[in-house]
Amino acid sequence: MTAFSYHRPTTLPEAWRLLAAHPGAVLLAGGTDLLVRIRAREIRPPAVVSLRRIPVLAGATVERGGGLRIGAATPVADLLRHPAVVRRYPLLAQALRVMASPQIRNVATLGGNLCNASPCADTAPPLLAYEARVVLERARGRRELPLETFFLGPGETARRPGEILTAVRLPAPPPGARVLFHKQRRVHLDLALASVAVLLQFRGSTCRRARIAAGSVGPTPLRLREVERLIEGRVVTPELAAQAGALAARSVSPIDDLRATAAWRRTIVEVRLRRAILELAGLSPEGGAS
């Protein structure tokens, strides 16, 4: 590991001062991505500013209007113990439960997972489905963006130098929504080879609202709006579910890599989305393709 100066501010203004004073400084939340990269000598930051002692960045609170504000440096394991997350945002909880290992979940944070901007970030698809917004703050100024516009590419976000992602805000969950997160893995402890997050609201057998997102099948986590539009306002049938799966497979842009082929990733999106829609609609999955 290369040497760096290490700073542990307890307030945001202190953190901003440190960032300004140490050009090239990086922010540390859980460190589960950052420290791996430093140890591998992929990056050599001169200074590391820890966000772990800033109280305002930790914890989740229910906001007026029924939404949830999650401090960016809240560890994943804490979120899984938070009643509002588990009861009101089950799609997020499903994703958090299959993220990494228990040890990693104890330190890895929600904000860190988003700022790392990996296309396979497990928290991204459910947050996209909930139409979450991110709060970015700097010494003078604060802005809020839809999460969808936060991701620019692999490892790239809209966060500007000097800005700290302070919170993730989720609107009040759609009442009565049925949700399903599927993470395709090689073995239990794995990065997502492909993932789909599905949130459907029904009136009878008609889908009133669909929010669908996918991970690991494009340069960023993707919201699949075309698929949402296909389903919304229609009675869910096996045919519709199959169409949705096929459309999703066409909408994504996965790559071949050593974890999986692009073609297989498309297949997974198609099959898993179809099955998820059927399951949420209370229909039994239909027979196989072959």
Partner: peptide
């Protein structure tokens, strides 16, 4: 990226 079976498998 070298996957061993875990306790789950």
């Amino acid at each position: 990226d070298y996957k061993l079976p875990t306790a789950h498998e």
